[in-house]
Nucleic acid binder design. Structure first.
Lengths: 232, 232
DNA sequence: AACGCTATTTATAACTC
DNA sequence: TGAGTTATAAATAGCGT
């Protein structure tokens, strides 16, 4: 009963422009038909020409339709090899890299375990499973360590002592020099009033003693220095 | 000038079966034409229906031809999201996983470094950079370890000693019993001829001694056991 | 939304240059 | 090889169901 006569011009089945079909129903029908047509053509091409063909279509609604003459993944991987920017197909490489990392981690875990066990033994923990021989070995190792540590400690102490002696000598010399100066001054100059003298004295002992001491001092030596200095 | 008349039947332009074209030239021509046809169709589909379309074609010679209505990579990634076995598009995940692994490795490296430094110090190596205080600490730790190790060693020795004493006692008892038996037998029985006696004697010392000793022995104790047994 | 029909447009097999 | 031609096969737009 020939409906749809309200359209101007082009009636019946005809050529269409290649631009988005605005009529939703019509568009969906066309989508369905042309999609299967595309896949058919893709298939024919793959068979006739012995080619590997894949077609991916996402409908406007987001649904996926696909054709592939062989495994899609294989084809996409193969595509990845051609595509200059790698984003697929480095997969096996990534996989290999991952495995390497995992191996590395494994090795490290083992190393840490070993170190921890040994460490614990050196700390005297977890000895329950050790044989007498093992204990003996550890004993020897620890004794050796102790010897080394103590000799090193002795070395350091000896060094410090040497430094201190040096400093003591310096200080003694300094003191001697100061006393001599003082004496000389007392002999050469007349006595000044008491009030003024106090001020001068305080100033001279702080600034006149030079800053040599504080510039070469370190915390530990200061403690030892106390003795010879206060003994004067 | 109408050539190519040498073919039987179906002349002129006609229908073809969908199966591999054997004639190489013909196949290549068809490949070229149909490929562009396919891409054209793909394009039309994408425009008419506002769909995302991609087509990948590998010629038999291995060359890649592709069409995509938008970036091929985007389409393939989108495909990856749909594809149940993820092999694309898990990329960001893989990336994250990789970074985690790397962090893990970093942490382990640091841990190993720390352990090694401490370990070396406990072994008396690399003490050059230690302050007196540090050395003192290590000294104390090592002494403590030594005490623990030695007390453990002492424990083990004590245990072994105890075991040995126990065994000695057992053996002494056994020997006593055997002697008594021997005495009893000599008193009760008449003397047998010498030749026969030798045979009997050899037999009785091997089988009559029971197998108790060998069944409860272990390697270390055997060594110590030698003494009291051979001294009889 | 899926199928069938068919007039028409398109794609293309075979051919030529 | 590649480009153009044409007769024919295939695809499909618009329609109905």
């Amino acid at each position: 009963m020939n409906l749809g006569m309200n359209m101007a011009g082009k009636m019946g089945r005809g050529k269409i422009e290649i631009k988005k079909i605005e009529n939703v129903t019509s568009r969906q029908v066309t989508f369905s038909k042309r999609r299967s047509g595309l896949f058919k053509k893709a298939h024919e091409l793959s068979v006739l020409c012995d080619a590997q063909v894949a077609a991916l279509v996402f409908s406007q609604s987001g649904r996926l339709y696909e054709y592939s003459s062989s495994e899609m993944e294989k084809i996409i991987e193969r595509y990845g090899k051609f595509s200059n920017d790698s984003f697929v197909a480095e997969r096996p490489q990534v996989e290999r890299y991952l495995q390497e990392l995992k191996k590395e981690i494994d090795r490290m875990v083992k190393k840490i375990d070993l170190l921890e066990v040994h460490h614990r033994k050196l700390m005297g923990q977890g000895l329950g499973s050790c044989s007498v021989a093992e204990l003996q070995e550890i004993d020897i190792q620890i004794e050796k360590s102790l010897r080394i540590v103590r000799s090193r400690k002795a070395e350091l102490y000896a060094g410090q002592l040497e430094k201190l002696k040096e400093k003591e000598r310096e200080l003694l010399n300094e003191r001697k020099r100061l006393r001599e100066e003082q004496l000389r001054e007392r002999l050469m100059r007349p006595v000044v009033p008491l009030t003024l003298q106090i001020c001068d004295k305080g100033k001279s002992t702080e600034d006149g003693g030079r800053t040599k001491h504080s510039s070469t001092s370190d915390v530990e030596t200061d403690l030892f220095i106390g003795l010879p200095v206060t003994r004067q």
